[in-house]
């Protein structure tokens, strides 16, 4: 915790460097600069690797794009015509150079299938994917915190052992079930049997109601994982001296848990949510297939399995990677604001 860091001032002694001026603000600012520089360089390197690896990987996808695009009735001459039009007859390094030059201008090329800029197709789907993944992360973070805290408080000091055991079993089972299985189960229960929610996306339904099951299926497993960790953290925090003191002062429960315990849990929960969101982007692509959700999943599956649409695949992988990297960076910045120790500097 930042409060503890501030309170544990270094003790001067022989060989200890003498600090000039107001040491804390200056060193914190420097730490931030070095942190942002370090992470900025890392981001650029990661993106460069992403661009290069993506170019190389799509070459390994089985199937000839020209044959796929030309269609089953095409003659060989028509297939070769398509190959020329797509630039696939060019030498490897020419294709790579053209690709790199394009990417520098955020141009991933024209979609083989749609004949429009690939990034345009991908960006049309991104909001749909982000709508369910971001909502799911917020929900699993908040609900996981609430559930973990509640059970942690209820079972502190080895109280209510049945609750702790039940909690462990239930959350363990749920978090171990793959997201696509949960999604299918939700469809069966809420759409097919109970008929209270739509089974999939359709213009016949409102966007909000169609999003409930996809968000729920992405939320439940992660929520259980967060709750399990938060519960353990809660148990540890409740044994801290400052919490004993707060309880000794008979502070109201809301003040005790919301003001003194929750902020200390946020570091762990936020770190975890960043990892979960990155993983959820992968899960969302599968979940979208279950719910016919018009996000990146369908675009990528069609691009790989049907069209061999290299520009779309490259643009989609780049965008997903970029989202993941940026979110990780944002969460690290937030963690830095909450707890400067996470900036990676050995201070004091």
């Amino acid at each position: 915790m930042s409060t503890q860091t501030h309170e544990s001032s270094p003790v001067s002694g022989p060989g200890t460097p003498v600090l000039d001026g107001p040491p804390r603000a200056a060193s914190l600012g420097g730490a931030w600069r070095r942190f942002l520089l370090r992470r900025g360089v890392g981001l650029v390197i990661n993106l460069a690797l992403l661009v290069i690896v993506t170019f190389l990987i799509v070459q390994l996808i089985p199937g000839d794009p020209a044959t796929a695009i030309a269609g089953e009735s095409a003659t060989l001459a028509q297939v070769e015509l398509v190959r020329t039009q797509l630039g696939l007859d060019q030498p490897f390094f020419v294709q790579f150079g053209t690709y790199l030059l394009g990417v520098l201008q955020l141009d991933f090329g024209t979609s083989f299938r749609y004949r429009v800029p690939a990034l345009e197709v991908v960006m049309a789907a991104v909001p749909f994917t982000l709508a369910i993944t971001v909502a799911a992360v917020i929900l699993l973070l908040v609900l996981g915190l609430a559930l973990g805290m509640a059970v942690g408080v209820a079972t502190r000091g080895d109280r209510r052992r049945w609750l702790g055991g039940t909690f462990n079993v239930v959350t363990g089972v749920i978090s171990s079930v793959p997201v696509y299985v949960q999604a299918t189960a939700f469809v069966v229960i809420f759409a097919v049997l109970l008929r209270v929610l739509p089974p999939a996306y359709s213009p016949a339904y409102g966007f909000g109601i169609a999003a409930i099951l996809p968000i729920a299926s992405l939320t439940v497993g992660g929520m259980c994982s967060v709750a399990r960790i938060v519960r353990r953290e809660t148990a540890v925090i409740l044994e801290q001296d400052y919490m004993r003191t707060a309880r000794g002062w008979r502070l109201p429960a809301l003040s005790l848990y919301a003001r003194h315990m929750l902020p200390n849990l946020l570091t762990t929960a936020l770190t975890l949510s960043g990892i979960i969101l990155t993983a959820l982007l992968g899960s969302a692509l599968i979940t979208e297939a279950v719910f016919a959700w018009p996000g990146l999943g369908g675009v990528i599956v069609q691009a790989i399995a049907i069209d061999k649409d290299y520009p779309i695949i490259r643009a989609a992988v780049f965008v997903i990677g970029l989202i993941s990297l940026v979110i990780t960076l944002v969460i690290d910045v937030i963690l830095g604001l909450i707890d400067p120790r996470t900036l990676g500097e050995k201070r004091g």
């Binding site: 909502a135 917020i138 929900l139 739509p198 339904y205 409102g206 966007f207 909000g208 109601i209 169609a210 999003a211 409930i212 968000i215």
Partner: peptide
Amino acid sequence: LALAGCSGGS
């Protein structure tokens, strides 16, 4: 989100 989900459908 909850409000949007509950109010969006018909």
